[in-house]
Every structure is written in C-alpha cells, then in structure tokens.
C-alpha cells in the first residue's frame, strides 16, 4: 500500500516534466466549441447583436471623440483594411474614443475603437493600419466569440431536445449579461489569450501588407509604446507577452519575406487628418 502511495506522486511528477511544459495554448477548449464550422445566419446575427451591446458598454466607459473628420478618416482606413480581412458578411464600424489612454478595442460583429491617445502616439497611417488590422483580426478569428461561446438560436433536433430538458429561455438573458461582463473583463482587464494576441498580430500584419501598408509598422508602433495598455498582459501569467509578441512578429515578417519590404507609410495623409 505505502509503496503504491509513493509511486503515484512520482509518476505524476515524471508526467509533468515530460509532457506538461512542452506545449502552449488553451488545452481545455474542444473543437466543438470553436464556432467556425457552425456559423450560420443566426450565429452571425448573434455575434453582431453581442458586439453591438459590447460596443455600447465600451461607449459607457468612454465618450466618442467629437471630431467628424478624425472619425471619418479612421473609418476610411479601417474599412479599406476590412476588404482584405475575409469576413464580408460583417459591416465594420470604427470609432475614436476621447481618451488619453493608449488603447484599442474590438467587439465582435465589426465594432472597433481606438483611443485618441493611441492616435497621438502614432507617426503614420501605416501604424494606424497596423493597429486597426490587429483589431480586425480579433474579429475575423472570433477570439471573443469563441472564448465566450457566442452562438445563435438552436434550430436542430439536438438543440430542440436539449432545450426541452434544460428549459433555457429564462436563462438566456442572464447568460448574455454574464457573457458581456466577461467580454468587458477581457477588453479592459485581463486581455486576450497570448495565442490570440499572437494570431491577431500575424493576421493583422498580413492584412495591412496586402492592403499596401508597411508590414513593419505595427512592430514600430509597439516598440514605441512598449506596452499597449491592457494587451500587455498575459492570460496565463506565464510569459512576458510584449517580448513574446515582438519575437512572433519578427517570425511572421521573416516567414513571409516581409522584413525588408518597404510599402506605404502615408505619413503626410496621417498628419493631414489627425491633429497633433
């Protein structure tokens, strides 16, 4: 008996050493909860509804910058990028928040905000495009949607039977409120998962590059601000995310042969539209 009891922790420790630290990612998430294969009209509608409510909460914390020219300019840059992002079913909305913070937010369904403080730190349109493309990538890759399991109405026998058992209708509103609370927590406090940030950087760089912007602009901007507000957090508290992101960005640029590519920075146009 005692021998067995001694063997168990030994086996556990060996298991941890050999397999535990060799991987990274959100291990618990099962493929069934990743929504890409299941997206139908109701899923998209649910995502947009959720994003709209989340956007309302963001605007409850920040006021929109009362400058039509700046908002129109950011919208033009953002919508041009969205054309290359791969989710034509979404209508993107971009807004500038009247805050000194250096930050940007993406709500599911196509709602993207950037702060005035972030714009003030930028040096050209390519950097703006890099940040907006990064936020667009969060939406395209459904990072919040997947993490919070935002899905539309059930329409199948499976859903019907499950609903019959669970009696879900009374809980739907409560669940939505909780999901919104969690989404706010992701955006304002704990940040995205490390792997989601890295994926958004990678996709964002490619989108900005395809749209004609300097692919290194995001890296330049991140280097200039060192920490990008709430995103400079690690989901698991395991890695210094800033260094990890910069390393991954370099890998992405190298992998796609973009490290020495010189594309548009549109510095003049940026300064024409953004009052410094």
């Amino acid at each position: 008996m005692n021998k067995t009891i001694r063997v168990i922790p030994a086996l556990l420790i060996i298991s941890i050493i050999f397999v535990g630290f060799a991987f990274a990612g959100d291990g618990r998430q099962r493929v069934s909860s990743i929504s890409s294969e299941y997206s139908d009209v109701s899923d998209i509608e649910a995502e947009i509804r959720f994003g709209r409510e989340l956007a309302a909460r963001i605007l409850g914390n920040y006021s929109l910058l009362d400058d039509e020219k700046v908002n129109r300019y950011v919208n033009l840059v953002g919508k041009a990028l969205a054309l290359y992002a791969g989710r034509p079913e979404l209508r993107y909305h971009f807004g500038v928040l009247d805050s000194d913070e250096i930050n940007a937010f993406a709500a599911p369904g196509g709602y993207i905000f950037i702060t005035r403080g972030a714009l003030m730190k930028m040096d050209n349109e390519a950097q703006l495009a890099g940040v907006l493309a990064h936020e667009i990538a969060h939406i395209v890759k459904k990072h919040v949607v997947n993490e919070l399991n935002i899905k539309g109405e059930e329409g199948s026998g499976v859903g019907g039977l499950a609903g019959l058992i669970g009696g879900p209708t009374a809980s739907v509103r409560g669940a939505l409120e909780q999901a919104l609370d969690d989404a706010v927590d992701i955006l304002f406090n704990r940040g995205y998962k490390v792997k989601d940030e890295i994926e958004a950087d990678r996709v964002g760089i490619l989108v900005a590059s395809v749209a004609g912007y300097d692919p290194s602009a995001l890296r330049e901007f991140l280097s200039s601000v060192k920490s990008f507000e709430k995103e400079d957090r690690t989901y698991k508290g395991e890695h210094p995310i800033f260094e990890v992101r910069m390393r991954e960005i370099d890998e992405t640029l190298k992998a796609h042969g973009l490290q020495d590519v010189k594309k548009a920075k549109a510095k003049d146009r940026f300064y024409e539209n953004i009052k410094k």
Binding site: L12, S15, I16, V19, G20, F21, A22, F23, A24, G25, D26, G27, R28, K236
Partner: peptide, 9 residues
C-alpha cells in the same frame, strides 16, 4: 492545477 495548457491535475 494546470501546470501547462496541455495538462491538468
């Protein structure tokens, strides 16, 4: 306890 994202104890 999750010592890594791949392992839970």
């Amino acid at each position: 306890w999750e010592p890594s994202d791949k392992l839970a104890i």
